[in-house]
Design a binder for these strands. Sequence first.
RNA 1: GCUCCGGUAGCUCAGCUGGAUAGAGCAACGGAUUUCUAAUCCGUAGGUCACAGGUUCGAGCCCUGUCCGGAGUACCA
Length: 598
Amino acid sequence: MIRLEERIRIAAAEAIIELYETEVNSNNIQVQGTRKDLTGDFTIVVFPLLKISKKNPVVTGEEIGRKLLEKINDIDSFEVVKGFLNLILKTDFWINHLNTILTCNKYGQKEANEDAQLVMVEYSSPNTNKPLHLGHIRNNLLGFSVSQLLKANGKRVEMVNLVNDRGIHICKSMLAWQKWGKGASPESTGKKGDRLVGDYYVLFEKALQKEIGEMIEKGADKEAAVKNAPLLLEAQEMLREWEAGNDEVIKLWRKMNAWVYEGFDKTYADLGVWFDKTYYESETYQLGKNLVDKGLKDSILFQKEDGSVWADLTDDGLDEKLLLRSDGTSVYMTQDLGTAHQRFADSEFSNHVYVVGNEQIYHFKVLSIILKKLGYEWADRLFHLSYGMVELPEGKMKSREGKVVDADDLIREMVDSAAEVSNELGKLDGFPDLEKRKIYSQIALGALKYFILKVDPIKTMLFNPKESIDFNGNTGPFIQYTFVRIKSVLRKAYEQGMVIPEQVDPRTEVSEKEIALIRKLYEYPDLLDEAGLLYSPALVANYLYDLVKEYNHFYQYHQIIKEEDSLKRDFRLALSNFVANNIEDGMNILGIEMPERM
RNA sequence: GCUCCGGUAGCUCAGCUGGAUAGAGCAACGGAUUUCUAAUCCGUAGGUCACAGGUUCGAGCCCUGUCCGGAGUACCA
């Protein structure tokens, strides 16, 4: 289906040849939606064409307008205001458009086929020493939603997780558990596994700080104390044992990581996100080292006197970057090189999206350059989707001060809050408890997800739990509610024996507001494309809100079922049904479930 | 120091490749309505788009500089 804008551009280019004997590329003709407060549907900006016509804006607009009227049947009339040529379409066009899209299954979305491009999306990327927090929530929601967005754009998508499961941090938890744990387990304590392990990490850090403090008190140099505290040395020793493959250490490591994964799985399930595949740094860090060795042999990288290996990035306007420490151990970058190599070997992706916080912009810039130097032609097809921090009304989260918002706690509070608000309104009175609980959870997560996703990823954002669960304004629950209300109307119509028509009669009398609603729907496919290109669920979220407002705006005062004119009633039923489906599909792209009733 | 990102109404955010008089919601004030789910709808008020130059027929958007806020620049991840 060729979009009308495209037809207008082509016709306008033809008109210009006929009128002024000058050829212009139709892509250079600006066609846009007409301002809401003016009459018209589409507008051509004539200013850029004045050089060609050598006439004033009004005359030029009128000459082109007359030509377009002849060329495009769907145009009813036109009006020139200043330098803008406003085209007014026949009502038929919109009804025909509605009839076309009524037959769409997932409107605006493209189907993936076998040879569709494969995009790999990495998100979440937790450490195994503490539970997920609010920052991870933004990450998970973005990663999942972006994946759905790419699928809606006809891509094949592989969602992957990268678990940072090795290193000093997990050894700290292990050591603390060994020393003070007394065999505690998730079963014996009733704690979630990730929380349990996280608690031992905190315990370790506290004990370490205390130890350092005591050393300084006894006259030790501060720097030396931080470096040589016995607890820290013990943890470092444990890491060496781990790398050496000490059975007992590995066994403990496996046991505690398994607890953590069990805990993470629960949080992921609560958030409604999942992964097609999980990569573990413990399995790819060796590979990274091998790549660096090879790069060194091929003189792409260089070695310093102390044995450390570096990449020289001064030609790219950056510094030198360390890839192997002088003791031969790997750093973060080394591991990411290995992981990237492994992933391309596994999946031959055409693009790879990394959903990682904006504090790592530099890291991914460097990653791409080094991969390129190492000869990977796909190095410039890595895309770092960076996002800003999430702040709370009380201020910034600081993990050092223990001021983190735990993901599980937050979800629980949201559900409680949804229940409270619902009970006050009494809407769910008489529903079975099981259904009530399901709806509370759908509302709570709808609120949380929508609130976070509606904001441009790049921006630092403020999450206000109370505001998010509002049933008015630009919120998830408001959209869910409108959806449920439409469904309720349709259900009632069905009970009264009405059938939702698959097509609408072109003779139906429709109002301007209704056309405005169809117009809104008309924008959706383009918007979805653009959102996919920008990897921004925010565009979809804000569109859905606009759509809902447009719908409410008109249907507030209309009794669809009681409408006596059967053509009008059919039209409104069909349009309502379509809007509901569009809302549901869109919300699913955001990873938001829609309740049946609420 | 250098690099990157942000700065739009009291608050939280939109603003599509530069287009017409910069938009929502929340909070405030006023009104409608007892509903096919009012968890709604309408109205009023609220702006030097951080600041100063520049490019352009036209700048919230592009360029330069300044200010404010955040992040990065580690043999941390």
